[in-house]
């Protein structure tokens, strides 16, 4: 007997589809240079922080898998990305135990409770960060200078704080390590002291800030690559950055002596990291074409508003979380017109 197997398929015939794993792996790869730059800037502490937070995220993901009685989802790389992004958004000298708490909360509260990847409402990394921001407001605003001389030989003193204990004051250490260090991020210096940091400092990465947010150029390059491979929706970062720049420009036009220009707003804080890697999370951003623009614009404008008028100097995190929360609503009110329907008169 001779049977022929017939394979019936409908068009289109794409040989290799893009899988979740593929996209996630590419995102993770583009984050490697950002991490490397962070380690170059902050030394051992940055490395330890990235590793610790990632391990905490992976372990929580695995534990969630086991509790739900399902196969391991570590292979889709999403938990690793959450870990790395979360670590990059924390201060370099953040105590490792707090980093682990952030990682556990990010996965357990931000993702597993909703039902895992694809079901979460908020970007898990930002959930973790928001939690430690509320829990440890002092530690998360303790900044240290980049390029400290002994950064590859010793940890920042606060890094190795014993679990549950208060981190030591790092301002004295930071001032001793790098002369003239003020302990404030460019945003805080502008907001509270009215000092504007020149753009060249941002590009050199010599300003205080979160572990990964000061490598603005590398983040942008990574974003460009991902956009070129269609691994992220280029409209989101463009909308976020453009709307933030536009808002900043309007404010500057209105009161130039009070508000900094668009360039400062784009380069400072975590806007670049947030726009490229966090706002673009496929699960928590809209899917409709118009919705994507609305979502990005909302995040950009909110960021500027929070920075200018809020109690805290940085607002990217809350802006994106608000954007995440509004995503279902945006999707509902911006349905694309199906081909051949509507529009008739």
């Amino acid at each position: 007997m001779n049977t022929t197997r017939l394979e019936l398929r409908t068009t289109p015939h794409i040989k290799a589809g893009r899988t979740v794993e593929q996209i996630m792996r590419a995102v993770l790869l583009t984050l490697v240079p950002v991490c490397a730059f962070a380690v170059w800037q902050y030394g051992l502490s940055a490395l330890a922080l990235i590793v610790t937070v990632s391990v905490a995220c992976l372990a929580s993901e695995r534990l969630a898998n086991r509790l739900r009685g399902e196969a391991s989802t570590l292979g889709d790389w999403s938990a690793a990305i959450t870990g790395v992004l979360l670590a990059l958004s924390l201060p370099p000298g953040f105590p490792l135990w707090m980093g682990a708490v952030a990682g556990i909360v990010a996965i357990a509260l931000g993702k597993a409770l909703f039902g895992g990847l694809g079901h979460n409402v908020f970007n898990p990394a930002l959930v973790g960060r928001a939690f430690v921001q509320a829990a440890f407001p002092a530690a998360i605003t303790a900044w240290v200078p980049a390029y400290a001389p002994g950064r590859f030989a010793e940890f920042i003193p606060s890094t190795l704080t014993p679990p549950l204990m208060q981190p030591p004051e790092v301002s004295a250490w930071a001032q001793a390590a790098v002369d003239g260090f003020t302990g404030a991020t460019p945003l805080a210096r502008w907001k509270y002291d009215g000092v504007l940091t020149p753009a060249t400092d941002f590009l050199a990465g010599s300003v205080a800030g979160s572990t990964g947010e000061t490598g603005a150029v590398l983040i942008l390059l990574g974003g460009l690559y991902l956009a070129a491979r269609r691994y992220l929706d280029w409209r989101i970062p463009v909308a976020v950055l453009a709307s933030a720049a536009l808002a900043a420009w309007l404010f500057q036009l209105w009161a130039p002596e009070r508000y900094p220009g668009p360039l400062f707003v784009l380069l400072s804080g975590g806007l670049m990291l947030g726009a490229v890697y966090m706002a673009t999370d496929m699960v928590t951003s809209p899917v409709t074409p118009l919705g994507v623009w609305l979502y990005g614009a909302l995040i950009g404008v909110l960021t500027v508003l929070i920075r200018y008028f809020g109690g805290l100097p940085e607002g990217v995190m809350y802006a994106i979380l608000v954007g995440n929360a509004l995503t279902p609503l945006i999707d509902q009110y911006t349905p694309p017109r199906a081909f051949g329907t509507g529009g008739g008169r």
Partner: peptide
């Protein structure tokens, strides 16, 4: 030296 979790 305990670090209080402010959010709690």
């Amino acid at each position: 030296d305990f670090q209080p979790w402010g959010v709690m």
